[in-house]
Design a protein around this nucleic acid. Structure first.
Length: 437
RNA sequence: GCGGUCAUAGCUCAGUUGGUUAGAGCACAAGAUUGUGAAUCUUGGGGUCGCGGGUUCGAGUCCCGUUGGCCGCCCCA
């Protein structure tokens, strides 16, 4: 047993693990590129104050934070949003709108481990700045869906729940609640799915028992699962805010429908999401079976760039975590097996032949081919076995007989056929063979 | 922060009411095999039984503590 262990909740990526991670990152990156998002990155270590400013002092308990040698209070980043707000805020006036950015980065949270949650994880983050209308949400929900579909997941595997903090706010306002009570109700709404009526306990303690008629309206609103139901419910209310909001909903859902994404999206006003900085549409992706933690989450946060010292700038964003996502891929059998197979395996007779082979090996590698050979002298039988196991498509055989004739033996490992090949044609022949394969 | 559960080889695990030098399969390595393919056979390396303490003539086994894993609660940006 090793003397030193990894810190709790941290992960090590052996080559097979790293290949899986790369696969995920590669498809996310490719998908974001297709949607016209530009990639960025930023420091892993940030001023502690950046996160306190966004989330309040309590956040420190869940951060890897410490004082550095210069006396600065710092924290390993637990999320990307404050950082990207700073980046965008600092150059907002010079950036072409809309600003569509994404990142794939590692984050740290000082939390207890659970299935799908560790202290160190990766997230894909995508954000759009400078677009106040639901056009930004359309783009991001579409990107979110495609970031999952790119791996072969379908509407059978996951769905996106769509909700709206603004709509709740305007609705509860129309029911005559003041702002503190609205926040109290939203807290209850967020918990309702899990706790039922007990979700209102906190509200009752703070504000007294909620009016029965109002509670009934709230519970009815919470059940709304479609645009049609929403329109019916709001028909009884007048007011510009609510009708403008309804128009946004129509635009959003029509846009998603036109992209063919309706089958992935569900209206579900029960989703409010914990943190209070969201200001409009919010959305979360879940596995259909409901066995895993949320796959992704996001929403609109129009006030945050300004709150963190930048100009007023509307923003929407979401993040996909890699841990739950990888669990889902494994569960659905969508995680490929990765083998790092060379293109060419060289079989080498002895030390003299090895020196001859080295020239070709390096030339092939310089030409971009993946070439392997045994580092130690091995019987031919073993070498052919190794060549077959390596997954290489062809073997080059450097034996004394061949080299005496100025050739190498070129063996197609799939066909099990061989022919002699003049030394000076090795690179060109390998290129032709692999291009045809 | 709280609770449950587990910890023996790289992996999966066995190990009897406490009793000699802790085992198997897989994996890895060597040989059979000095020029041709995932087989077979033989052999080998690899363990302070998570760590520390206690009970005992004797602890992988029983007790206490601790660290870590997994699962759940709180939280979830």
């Amino acid at each position: 047993m090793a003397t030193f262990q990894t810190l709790p909740g941290f992960r090590e990526f052996y080559p097979e693990d790293f290949a899986r991670r790369n696969h995920i990152f590669r498809l996310w990156r490719q998908t974001a590129g297709a949607f016209g998002f530009a990639e960025y990155d930023a420091p892993v270590l940030e001023p502690l104050e950046l996160y306190k400013a966004k989330s309040g002092d309590e956040i420190e308990a869940q951060l890897f934070s410490f004082t550095d040698k210069g006396g600065r209070d710092v924290a390993l980043r637990p999320e990307m949003t404050p950082t990207v707000c700073r980046l965008v805020g600092a150059k907002a006036n010079a950036l072409k709108r809309p600003i569509k950015w994404f990142s794939i980065a590692e984050f740290y949270r000082y939390e207890r481990m659970q299935k799908g949650r560790g202290r160190c994880f990766n997230q894909f983050n995508a954000d759009i700045f400078g677009e106040p209308g639901p056009e930004a949400e359309i783009e991001l929900v579409a990107l979110l869906v495609q970031c999952l579909c790119a791996f072969g997941l379908t509407e059978q595997d996951f769905y996106v729940r769509l909700s709206d903090r603004n709509l709740w706010f305007y609705y509860l306002e129309a029911l005559g609640l003041d702002e503190p009570r609205i926040r109290g109700v939203l807290g209850a709404v967020d918990k309702y799915e899990k706790y039922g009526d007990d979700a209102f306990t906190g509200y009752t303690e703070q504000f007294g028992a909620i009016d029965g008629a109002i509670k009934a309206k709230i519970l009815a609103f919470l059940q709304i699962k479609s645009l049609a139901a929403l329109e019916r419910e709001l028909a009884a209310f007048s007011g510009e805010k609510l009708s403008a909001r309804l128009a946004d909903w129509k635009k959003l859902l029509r846009g998603l429908d036109a992209m063919g994404l309706t089958r992935f999206v569900e209206v579900d006003l029960g989703v409010v999401r914990g943190l209070a900085y969201y200001t409009g549409f919010v959305f979360e992706a879940f596995d259909r079976k409901g066995e895993l933690r949320a796959l992704a989450g996001g929403g609109r946060y129009d006030d945050l760039v300004q709150k963190l010292g930048g100009p007023a700038l509307p923003a929407v964003g979401f993040a996909i975590g890699d841990m739950t996502f990888a669990l889902l891929l494994e569960e659905r059998g969508l995680m490929p097996k990765f083998v790092q197979a060379p293109d060419v395996y060289c079989v080498i007779g002895g030390e003299a032949e090895r020196l001859a082979a080295f020239g070709d090996i390096h030339a092939l590698r310089a030409a971009g081919f993946r070439v392997e050979y045994p580092m130690k002298e091995l019987a031919f039988g073993k070498q052919f076995k190794a060549a077959a196991e390596s997954g290489a498509k062809l073997a080059l055989i450097y034996g004394a007989d061949e080299l005496a004739k100025g050739v190498v033996k070129f063996r197609d490992l799939t066909e099990r056929s061989e022919r002699d090949l003049p030394r000076d044609q090795v690179v060109a022949t390998v290129r032709d063979f692999l291009a045809g394969a």
